[in-house]
Every structure is written in structure tokens, then in C-alpha cells.
Simulated assay, not measured.
Amino acid sequence: MRPKEHPELIFDVIPKLYESLTKVFVTHLGQVENQVKTLPRKFCRMYTTRPLANQLLQYLQKRKAHISEQDFHVVEEGKPFELRLSDGRRLEAMLCAGTALGCSLVLLIRKIQGGRLLYFYSAVQQDDLCQLVANPVFNSWIAQGTDLLFLNLTAVDQPFVHVDYDTLAATIDKLPRQENSVVRLKLPLFGYEPLVRRLGHTLLYGHIRLMGNYAESYALLSSDLQRFECRDYRVKVHIFDGEDFATLTSRAERFVMLRLDHLKWSPLPSRMNLIQLCSLVRPQHIHGIVPHHSVGNVPPAPEYLQRFRASYSPQQPQSPRPAAAALSRVQPDSRKTAHHVIRKKGLEFLSDDDDDTGMAASD
């Protein structure tokens, strides 16, 4: 997507056509396979961190794309860097990791002189917000909030489901298996790495094997692969990407397929994750993320997120006061009742002649 005020900045979309002034920020690779089904002849300059640059470069080179290290502007995670725009203006940006593996980032952009952020952008689940909050530079940048908060609202109306990774691992371990068979999990190549890492820290430690392309791609994010390569442990789970599954699986092998929806985890930001981000940065406005060249309007953020805006003021209809409401029920036609005012006459003083006349009459 492109922010309206700075159209030469693009977030998480690889353009089909090359533009020398375009700056592409890559914060995750969840949709990259769909974006590059048709490879560009030349890639726009891409700003990202080393782990994501390595993953994307390896994937595109396997696809025989015309790409090299020179097409990336690699920045250090959690360190500000300067952006020079085509009109001569300068901005300051920072990419920070919301997971231990560094495969899902948030993007912060502000004016060079500091102050409130112009943009805070988060497109996927930030699985470990403690990693963000532990960065003092990040805290100083969000201290004054942000003008625009861009969020992925795809799952905004879905109920929050807590994922207990130990329970999930126990469920996988108890799946019915024949002798010498394994559980097979087919995952997208990008996006689910935080879940795989967490499963490696459960009772499945040493019992998971990453296979083929998935193993090569995951290794670019972390050198801590011991939990997936223990030779003394019985292999219980094989993890493939979709392309490798057909080529690395023979009909003679016995296995149990684990459906993706049984994992109860998704790279899409959950309801709780959206609330956490909104309360963290206190935005002036919340916008849904729009894919590049998309058609149609993104619905506004729901009320439960809007209440975290710094400028939020609930518009509630004024209800009548209880006493007034009770009065209107008791006297429904009081407005139409005519009230007559009786004017008292002034005092009249009698003369002596009147008194005599009165007394004579009484006799």
C-alpha cells in the first residue's frame, strides 16, 4: 500500500513496474509468493532487515529472478535511518521486530526533527510485543503517539482464541499413528515460523524435522536449529512447504496429515494483538491496510479499537432526565393543557355614606 501523503513509499508490495524513486518497505513475506507469480524485470529498491532480505533473496533466486544484493537497502533492526524523498524533504524511519526470529516487523516513520510519528505500520501478528517494548529507542519514538496507525483488519471481527502451545503440542503428539508413521504438517513457506519455533520449545523438542525448502528458509532466520536436528530423538513431525510436499512424499510412506486450521494460530493479527498495538501507540487515526492497486474501500476500524484513539470522543445520544421522563409518563398531555390565571381584585374602601346606607338597610 501507499500512504496518500507520500506516494513514493510502498509498504509490503513488490511493484510489477520499476520506478527509480519508489522505496519498498518489506516487513514480512506472508504474501510474497502470490505477488511475484509474474516476476518483475527489475526490482524497486527494497528496505528491510538482514533476515528478511536473505529469505527473499534466496526465494527469488530459486525462481530465476533478476535480483541481487544491490536491490536491497538492508538496515539494522531497531536502529533509525534517514529517508530522502524526491522533493528534497527528509524523513526518519525505523524497522523493529515483533518476534524473536525477526520475520515480522513494524515500521515507524516520523519527521527528521522528531515529534509525533507520521506512520506506524503493522501488517502481521506481532507474536512477542515484549521484544518491542524492551527497546528504549522504540519507546522514545512512540511516546507522543502517531498520526496514522495502519493495521491489518482482516480478522478484526473474529473472536480471540488463546493458543496454549503446550496443549497444542500434546494434541499433535497424541494424534493416532501407525507404527513408524509420522505427523505431516504442510505450511506456507513464509509466515508460520514463529509457531514452528514455539512448538520446538514444547514436549516436541527434538521430535520435529524441517524438510526441504522450509528447512533452508528457516535456517536464514535462526542458527538455533538444535531442537529440530536431534538425531537421538524419534521423529514425530515433518514440516514441509506446499511445493516440497508432493516431491518429498512417497506413496509407500505412512503418515497422518495435520490440517492447518487445527493449529489455531495465524499470521493475521488477532483481536488481542490489535488492541495491544492501539493501546501502545495511541493513534490519532486508524486505517486498514490496503493492498497495492486494490479496488474498493476498507471498512473503518470497529468501535473497540477506535476508543484507543487519542482524539476519541464517544457520541452518545442524550437521554432525558429520569424526573422529566417520569413526569412525561404521568402527564402525557401536560403541554396541551390550558392554564387559566385568576387575577385578584384590589381592595375597595367604602365611604361613610356607603356605611350608613348599609346599616340602614340592615335594620
Rank of each mutant, 00 (worst) to 15 (best):
M46A: 03
S20P: 13
F72W: 06
K236L: 07
K264Q: 09
Q316A: 14
H285L: 10
D147L: 05
I286G: 00
V26C: 04
F245W: 03
C130A: 13
T38H: 08
C278Y: 01
L199Q: 05
S328K: 13
S334D: 10
F25T: 00
F43Y: 10
L57K: 09
N135S: 09
T154I: 04
R307I: 15
R84L: 11
F43C: 06
G242Y: 09
V13G: 04
F308D: 08
E193N: 13
L151S: 02
Y47L: 14
T99N: 15
V256S: 11
F228D: 02
V106P: 00
C44K: 00
T27G: 10
A93I: 12
M46R: 04
D71H: 01
V32Q: 04
R197E: 06
L117W: 10
E82D: 13
G212V: 06
I109P: 06
F190C: 05
G346R: 08
L108Q: 03
G98W: 01
P7M: 12
P15E: 05
H73S: 09
Y59D: 13
H162I: 02
S181V: 13
W265K: 05
V32T: 04
R198A: 10
I286P: 01
H6E: 07
L195E: 03
K264G: 04
L101W: 13
P40M: 13
L57R: 09
Q126M: 15
K23L: 15
T167V: 08
L129Q: 14
V161M: 02
N135I: 03
I112F: 08
Q284Y: 04
R110C: 01
H28I: 03
E19C: 09
F190L: 08
N180K: 10
A252V: 15
L56R: 06
S266L: 03
A310T: 09
R231S: 05
S270H: 05
I14C: 12
P291M: 08
L268M: 08
M359C: 07
R89F: 07
D356S: 14
K62D: 15
L52E: 01
S20A: 14
H238P: 00
Q318E: 15
P291A: 11
A252C: 14
F255R: 06
G206N: 12
N152M: 02
H292K: 07
L185W: 01
E5F: 05
L185V: 07
R309Y: 06
L105E: 08
I172S: 06
L203R: 09
Y304I: 10
A155K: 05
Y312C: 08
T154L: 04
Y119P: 06
Q315T: 15
R309M: 11
V161F: 00
V106M: 05
V196G: 02
C44T: 01
T48V: 07
F138N: 02
L149C: 05
T154G: 02
G296W: 14
V124K: 11
E303M: 14
F72D: 03
V161L: 01
E229V: 04
P317H: 14
D127N: 14
R227M: 08
K186M: 10
V290Y: 09
R50A: 11
R197D: 02
T99D: 15
Q126G: 12
F160W: 07
H207W: 06
I14T: 10
L221T: 05
L108R: 01
L187S: 09
T357I: 02
E33K: 07
R63S: 15
S222R: 03
G30Y: 12
V124R: 11
